[in-house]
Computed example of a mutant assay.
Amino acid sequence: MITIEQYVGKWSENEDWTEVRQAYAAQLLIQVNKLLEAAKKAGIELKNNPNTDSLISGTQYGGFRPQSCPIGAAGSSHKQGQAVDIFDPQNKLDGWINDAILTQYGLYREHPDATIRWCHLSTRAPKSGRRTFLP
């Protein structure tokens, strides 16, 4: 499962890692970890990303992103502590997840067509309100 330390990575001393964002991240990880546990029980093999030595995708921006990060808008879910990209090299997690599962865990995701080899999960609803959305 994903720890808060893994989620924040090297940004733990960054001024953007505020108490509010830490609280958002803590809630996000509770919900995401419950979903990941259910996925494991359903037979989905979760693999650690060799770049992060965790379930977080990418090299450094799959979890929390400071405001100075060149990826994403200032108000992006990652920059607010409300989104995480899960390493999913064979898209098995994305293939297992559906809107009913997302509703059960209070999560939203970017459409699998837009997230090849990772799964973007968020506690923040997109403007469309859809559980699975195109960014």
Rank of each mutant, 00 (worst) to 15 (best):
residue 109 R to V: 03
residue 12 S to P: 00
residue 53 D to F: 07
residue 102 L to S: 06
residue 27 Q to A: 08
residue 48 N to F: 07
residue 30 I to T: 15
residue 22 Q to D: 09
residue 92 K to L: 04
residue 5 E to L: 14
residue 1 M to N: 06
residue 81 G to P: 09
residue 14 N to F: 00
residue 98 N to H: 11
residue 9 G to N: 12
residue 81 G to F: 06
residue 86 I to V: 04
residue 82 Q to N: 14
residue 43 G to S: 12
residue 87 F to Q: 07
residue 120 H to K: 11
residue 125 A to D: 09
residue 115 T to H: 05
residue 89 P to T: 08
residue 83 A to T: 03
residue 17 W to A: 00
residue 126 P to L: 05
residue 11 W to P: 07
residue 54 S to H: 06
residue 16 D to E: 13
residue 52 T to Y: 03
residue 39 A to T: 09
residue 124 R to W: 05
residue 64 F to K: 13
residue 38 A to G: 00
residue 23 A to Y: 04
residue 121 L to W: 05
residue 76 S to C: 15
residue 42 A to Y: 02
residue 32 V to P: 03
residue 15 E to A: 12
residue 16 D to Y: 13
residue 35 L to H: 01
residue 33 N to W: 12
residue 21 R to Q: 01
residue 14 N to H: 12
residue 8 V to S: 09
residue 90 Q to V: 11
residue 16 D to G: 14
residue 76 S to M: 14
residue 100 A to F: 02
residue 119 C to M: 11
residue 43 G to I: 10
residue 87 F to S: 07
residue 68 S to P: 02
residue 135 P to F: 08
residue 116 I to Y: 06
residue 9 G to M: 12
residue 55 L to M: 00
residue 20 V to T: 14
residue 16 D to M: 11
residue 1 M to T: 08
residue 96 W to C: 04
residue 101 I to N: 10
residue 73 A to T: 15
residue 13 E to P: 00
residue 75 G to F: 01
residue 45 E to F: 09
residue 132 T to A: 02
residue 86 I to A: 01
residue 13 E to A: 11
residue 99 D to Q: 11
residue 37 E to G: 12
residue 116 I to M: 06
residue 19 E to T: 10
residue 72 G to V: 03
residue 132 T to S: 04
residue 130 R to E: 06
residue 9 G to D: 11
residue 123 T to G: 06
residue 76 S to Y: 13
residue 22 Q to Y: 10
residue 102 L to K: 06
residue 40 K to R: 14
residue 124 R to L: 11
residue 4 I to F: 06
residue 96 W to R: 04
residue 95 G to R: 05
residue 19 E to Y: 08
residue 24 Y to K: 15
residue 13 E to M: 05
residue 74 A to P: 10
residue 66 P to E: 10
residue 126 P to C: 05
residue 8 V to D: 06
residue 65 R to W: 10
residue 107 L to W: 10
residue 51 N to W: 09
residue 131 R to S: 01
residue 16 D to H: 15
residue 74 A to S: 09
residue 38 A to F: 00
residue 8 V to L: 07
residue 134 L to D: 07
residue 13 E to I: 04
residue 102 L to T: 05
residue 100 A to T: 03
residue 10 K to P: 01
residue 2 I to W: 15
residue 113 D to E: 14
residue 28 L to H: 05
residue 57 S to L: 01
residue 84 V to A: 15
